[in-house]
């Protein structure tokens, strides 16, 4: 197993508050790893540090053994909400990274991705004319158009309704089966994490550190039957227990 991303003793302090402390784990190449944890466990901080947009105050994060110090072309980012630029149409948004980088876009690949996510024919639409799910699919195309080796997804489907969300999860799996892009996925839905991932990492509350690390050895593509299996049910309950355990400890401490 090759570590694509290596998180080594990662820590982030905001003033005298530790958002993240001593966080260590690897993300193997061509796998999907989800990070779950209660609010304020620093999962977004961690992801933004992986993207190179934020810097750590201690420890380091390596991509292929090389320390990440700033945004890298090998790393794509999908934001909470779709984060499309409202003054550009869908294609204008997808071509935005190429414009910034001064690169010639691979139009065949983009057309293929658009087809894959079902957005063919919507190229000229403005973001406000698209549904939330379509906008987020557009932002996934934008991120994948540069063929990143790693895709970081920060609660991408949190604002979508349950049905659209499940559809998007299946789409992410399909895309992964095709491209085998390493994906780090942040979510607060345990079901989503299990459905998508090869591993689910549970972070503790402030300061965030790895509490548990569960492998998910289920056949892909994951079906409804798989998701209804005893194995998934048990895993879901264990993760829930981890998280509720944390919040009950916290409320007990608060009560004392």
């Amino acid at each position: 197993m090759v570590a694509k991303l290596a998180i080594r003793d990662a820590g982030k302090r905001y003033g005298d508050l530790d958002a993240l402390k001593g966080c260590t784990f690897d993300v193997a190449d061509k796998t999907i790893v989800s990070i779950v944890g209660p609010s304020g466990c620093g999962k977004t901080t961690l992801l933004w540090s992986m993207s190179g947009l934020h810097s750590l105050t201690s420890g380091e994060i390596d991509l292929d053994g090389q320390r990440i110090t700033g945004p890298r072309p090998e790393i794509g980012l999908v934001f909470q909400e779709a984060n499309l630029l409202p003054w550009r149409n869908l294609m204008g948004n997808i071509l935005f990274p190429f414009e910034v980088k001064g690169q010639k876009p691979d139009m065949d690949w983009i057309a293929h991705l658009m087809e894959r996510v079902g957005l063919t024919g919507f190229e000229k639409r403005m973001p406000r004319e698209l549904s939330g799910g379509m906008q987020q699919r557009g932002s996934i195309v934008r991120a994948l158009s540069l063929r990143p080796q790693v895709l970081l997804m920060d609660e991408p489907f949190g604002a979508l309704d349950a049905f659209t969300r499940e559809e998007m999860n299946r789409l992410v799996e399909e895309i992964w089966l095709e491209t085998k892009t390493t994906i780090v996925f942040i979510t607060h839905s345990i079901e989503e994490a299990i459905f998508l991932s090869d591993r689910v990492i549970v972070l503790t509350t402030r300061p965030g550190r790895v509490l548990a690390d569960y492998p998910v050895n289920l056949p892909r593509p994951r079906s409804l039957e798989t998701m209804a299996s005893r194995e998934v049910f048990d895993l879901m309950n264990r993760i829930k227990a981890d998280i509720y355990g944390m919040s009950s400890t916290r409320s007990r401490t608060a009560a004392e």
């Binding site: 945004p71 980012l77 934001f79 909470q80 984060n83 630029l85 935005f96 414009e99 910034v100």
Partner: peptide
């Protein structure tokens, strides 16, 4: 800030940040 971050993640220069965002 999300749109600024988006442009930054693609390595936008200060000038690009101004004209494009």
């Amino acid at each position: 800030s999300a749109k600024i971050a988006l442009a930054r993640s693609y390595g936008a220069t200060t000038l690009q940040m101004f004209w494009k965002i």
